[in-house]
């Protein structure tokens, strides 16, 4: 059977290349060619806000979604974003994700409601600051106009002293070029792929600023249930094998982006421990986490406080690994 895989990003990125070169071939291999996959990259079939619904409705059978694009449909998934620092190694991040999926039933429930079954989890590279002005630490963003990927990251920027702005992503490159905004904070690989570093060459990074929200790769529920026990097991096995390989891809991608930036002559500074403490300031964070609970309840996640409590516990465990 030939299935369609839909991804809104183009090939050439860390995740898309991984899906194209590792995961999809592994699925064909594990299922002995019973499942063949025809990928549609670059949003040519479904856009970033359409994949969840599109796979749920069987337009494509396999897909990838960033939960941040579905604020009310993947409320529980937004809990990860409430932890600005996280495990440095992908292995420990993915441990946390699987633990969370096992112990917080709301995560799988909202996927099931959307008609999809999760197969594999990947992640973006850690969050990074790309600024126009020279900066050697978090002080450098004070009072300046910064764009971030997502509502909670905008709030972190605000807490750290920047003026959060929501210039549309399509305008960010030119906005950085002309000085409409001073910088942008998002995942390291994504921003490098979008060439923001060409026009904001002062970069602050730390592997501790994980990009929290998982990238979920899933299959249509009815299609999944129509498969034999054996094929399902093979699908999961292919996904598990791939996930294990992603750790190395994650590290290599980080080093590659960094070395490409160094070769281009951009300034790269590591965030100090003090800066990281400021970024994830516990007092401010508690306020934001409480705000998340209130908003998540309003969006229909009745036991948001329990979800948050459980996540705090799991996050602490993951950090100790």
């Amino acid at each position: 059977e030939t299935m369609k895989y839909s991804d809104h990003d183009a090939t050439g990125g860390m995740r898309t290349d991984f899906v194209n070169d590792v995961w999809l071939p592994e699925i064909e291999k594990q299922t002995g060619g019973e499942i063949k996959v025809r990928p549609f990259f670059g949003g040519v079939l479904l856009g970033s806000k359409e994949v969840l619904g599109g796979v749920g409705d069987n337009v494509a059978q396999l897909g990838f979604a960033f939960p941040g694009h579905y604020p009310n449909q993947m409320v529980a998934h937004s809990v990860f974003a409430m932890f600005p620092t996280g495990p440095v190694k992908f292995e420990n991040q993915v441990w946390l994700y699987h633990q969370a999926y096992a112990e917080i039933p709301e995560l799988k429930a909202e996927l099931e409601k959307a008609g999809v079954v999760p197969l594999m989890i990947t992640a973006g590279l850690p969050g990074a600051f790309f600024g126009k002005k020279p900066m050697d630490g978090l002080d450098g963003i004070q009072g300046d106009k910064w764009r971030a990927g997502g509502k909670w990251l905008l709030r972190y920027l605000e807490s750290a002293g920047a003026q959060p702005v929501s210039v549309p992503w399509g305008d960010v490159y030119v906005a950085l070029q002309t000085g409409t905004i001073d910088g942008v904070f998002a995942n390291y690989d994504g921003m490098h792929l979008m060439k923001f570093d060409e026009v904001a060459q002062n970069i602050l990074i730390s592997k501790k600023l994980w990009y929290a929200t998982p990238f979920v790769h899933f299959i249509n529920k009815d299609v999944y249930e129509g498969l034999s026990e054996e094929t399902r097991a093979q699908l999961h096995e292919a996904s598990r094998i791939s996930e294990e390989k992603f750790g190395a891809v994650y590290d290599a991608a980080f080093d590659q982006v960094r070395s490409e930036q160094e070769a281009s002559g951009y300034t790269i500074n590591e965030l100090s421990d003090d800066d990281i403490a400021t970024w994830s300031d516990t007092d401010k964070l508690t306020v934001l986490q409480d705000a998340w609970v209130a908003e998540a309840k309003e969006a229909g996640l009745a036991n948001a406080d329990e979800v948050m409590a459980k996540m705090r516990e799991l996050h602490a465990q993951a950090m100790l690994r």
Binding site: K151, L154, S166, G300
Partner: peptide, 17 residues
């Protein structure tokens, strides 16, 4: 109808249905 049922919203600083 599906957007209404799932309370679909656009991600941003606010969540506008």
């Amino acid at each position: 109808l599906k957007a209404y049922r799932t309370n679909e919203a656009i991600a941003g600083a606010m969540q506008i249905p």
